[in-house]
């Protein structure tokens, strides 16, 4: 892992218009998110359902047009049709649902081969077939099954097809959008380990989106925590996991089950009051203040900036001194 920044996300915003009678409401799915990812590292992105983590991944890959903000890859600003098309060769995505994300009318070799066709990554048919065979071997699929359709495979195998497809263009960076949450627990570990093996082998950089904190801690170099479209804490994986600072991260981590009743009983589970506010009607200032046990007047006035609390560990909270 190097200190070279591979991906820089600056003040990224993604708002969706939600029709509401004659007017339309703004849903701030991602609101002013800034972070970078170093080459070769895995940034784990966590948060509860609906906090905008998937939208962050998709917007970075320009599957949604960003409302505002910039994405730099290898120092280059990603904007405009041509740049985006080139960008698709370097950055790919593994989707959450291995059942619905594969076109049911295509065979495995078509699914994996299409990115090769689109970006013209082979000179003859034999090379294409060879490449597909290599990719299938790489993710642990038998290349004899290349002419089968996606529905003939199990969930874990389908996710492997999705990974082979993402790897087809030889990318440097992959957004893994909850890649194991749709799989059986027994398969999850296999797939997570495969992600790690592939990273070591191919020098990949990951943005690993998940809500399973144990999986994220296992695979990540650093962890970023989101709440209601905002980034509230980011730091080295072990530190965020064992010594969380932001009150939201603290409560989130207290919810992680511990497989030992003695420890579990001794641990104090922090229950948050109330529900997550609707992203259509965001509270003023810090979005977490309506549920935060430490909220004060300042929290209602402005959104706290990310402050470096420890080296490389940033937290956005008025109550935490930098």
């Amino acid at each position: 892992m190097s200190d070279k920044k591979l991906l820089e996300v600056k003040h990224l915003k993604e708002y969706f218009d939600i029709p509401n009678g004659l007017r339309s409401l703004k849903l701030k799915a991602v609101d002013d998110v800034t972070f970078d990812i170093n080459e070769g590292e895995t940034l784990g992105l966590v948060g509860e359902s609906g906090c905008g983590k998937t939208t962050v991944g998709r917007t970075i890959l320009q599957l949604y047009k960003p409302t505002a903000g910039e994405v730099y890859f290898d120092g280059e600003l990603i904007r405009g049709k041509k740049t985006i098309h080139e960008f698709r060769k370097k950055a790919q995505m593994v989707f959450q649902d291995p059942y619905s994300s594969l076109d049911p009318r295509m065979t495995v070799s078509d699914i994996i081969g299409e990115p090769l066709d689109v970006h013209k990554l082979y000179s003859n048919k034999a090379e294409r077939t060879e490449k597909i065979k290599y990719l299938m071997d790489l993710v642990g699929l038998s290349s004899e099954h290349a002419s089968r359709y996606a529905h003939e495979f199990s969930g874990g195998q389908r996710q492997r097809i999705g990974i082979a497809r993402a790897l087809a263009v030889d990318p440097k960076f992959i957004v893994c959008d909850e890649p194991v949450s749709a799989l059986d627990v027994s398969i999850q570990a296999q797939v997570v380990n495969m992600f790690e093996d592939l990273q070591a082998k191919l020098g990949l950089t990951y943005l690993f989106i998940a809500h399973d904190l144990l999986v994220v801690k296992h695979i990540s170099t650093r962890i970023a925590v989101m709440y209601l479209g905002k980034l509230i804490e980011i730091g080295p994986a072990n530190e965020v996991y064992h010594e969380p600072i932001h009150p939201y991260t603290v409560s989130l981590l207290s919810a992680v089950p511990v497989p030992d009743p003695k420890i579990a009983r001794a641990n104090q589970r922090i229950h948050l009051e109330g529900d997550v506010p609707s992203p259509l009607h965001m509270p003023s200032g810090c979005p977490f203040r309506t549920r935060c046990p430490h909220a004060c007047d300042a929290c209602a006035e402005s959104m706290p900036e990310l402050k470096e609390v420890k080296p490389g560990h940033f937290v956005a909270c008025h109550k935490i001194e930098g």
Binding site: L61, R88, M93, F95, P115, V118, R165, V169
Partner: peptide, 14 residues
């Protein structure tokens, strides 16, 4: 609205 349409777009298909 299906996911595999998004997959195709992510591949870079026009």
């Amino acid at each position: 609205g299906q996911d595999y349409i998004r997959t195709a777009r992510a591949k870079g298909v026009s």
